[in-house]
Amino acid sequence: MECSAPAASPPSSGNDNGSDEQVMSEIHLGCPPRFCGPHISTFTVSLPQDVAHSAQDHGLGNDALESPIPGLDEDGDLLLPRRTSRNVEGSCDRYCVRIQHNITSSIPNVGLQVWRAELVLSDFILHKALCSSEFDGVIALELGAGTGLVGLLLARTAKTVFLTDHGNEILDNCAKNVELNIESLNCQATVNVRELDWFNAWPPKARIGESPSTQRYSWTSREIDDAENASFLLAADVIYSDDLTDAFFSTLERLMSRGSAKVLYMALEKRYNFSLSDLDVVANGYSHFRSYIKDEDEIKSLESGTMANFVGKRMDFSQIPQYVREYERGHDVEIWQIKYSGTEFKNRT
Rank of each mutant, 00 (worst) to 15 (best):
E89I: 09
R258K: 11
Y286V: 02
D280N: 12
S132A: 09
T251F: 01
G312T: 11
Y272C: 02
F249D: 05
I239C: 06
I27N: 05
G14T: 04
D75F: 10
D136W: 03
Q49K: 07
L65Q: 07
P70W: 06
K262G: 03
V324L: 05
D242C: 04
T160A: 08
R207N: 14
E326L: 10
L255S: 05
R98D: 13
E328V: 14
E344M: 05
A5E: 13
S287W: 00
L180P: 05
F345L: 08
D136K: 07
L153I: 10
N229Y: 04
L80E: 03
E21T: 13
S67V: 11
D16T: 03
L47C: 01
E328Q: 14
N177Y: 02
L72W: 07
P11F: 00
D316I: 03
D165E: 04
E74A: 14
V263W: 00
I125M: 13
I27C: 02
C36Q: 14
M24H: 02
E118N: 14
I299P: 04
Q215W: 11
A227Y: 07
E269N: 05
T84S: 09
F43H: 06
A227K: 08
D75Q: 09
A55R: 07
T147D: 02
D226C: 14
K128I: 12
D63A: 12
S133T: 12
G37L: 08
T160W: 00
S67M: 11
N15H: 09
P68N: 09
L244G: 06
L255R: 03
N181G: 05
C31S: 11
S91E: 12
I125S: 07
S257C: 07
L47M: 06
L154K: 09
S19K: 12
L78T: 08
A55Q: 15
D332G: 02
S67P: 00
A52V: 01
D297H: 10
L276A: 00
L252T: 03
R207L: 14
S122A: 15
A175E: 13
T104M: 12
V193F: 09
R83Y: 06
Y272F: 14
D172F: 02
L143E: 02
M256A: 09
A283R: 01
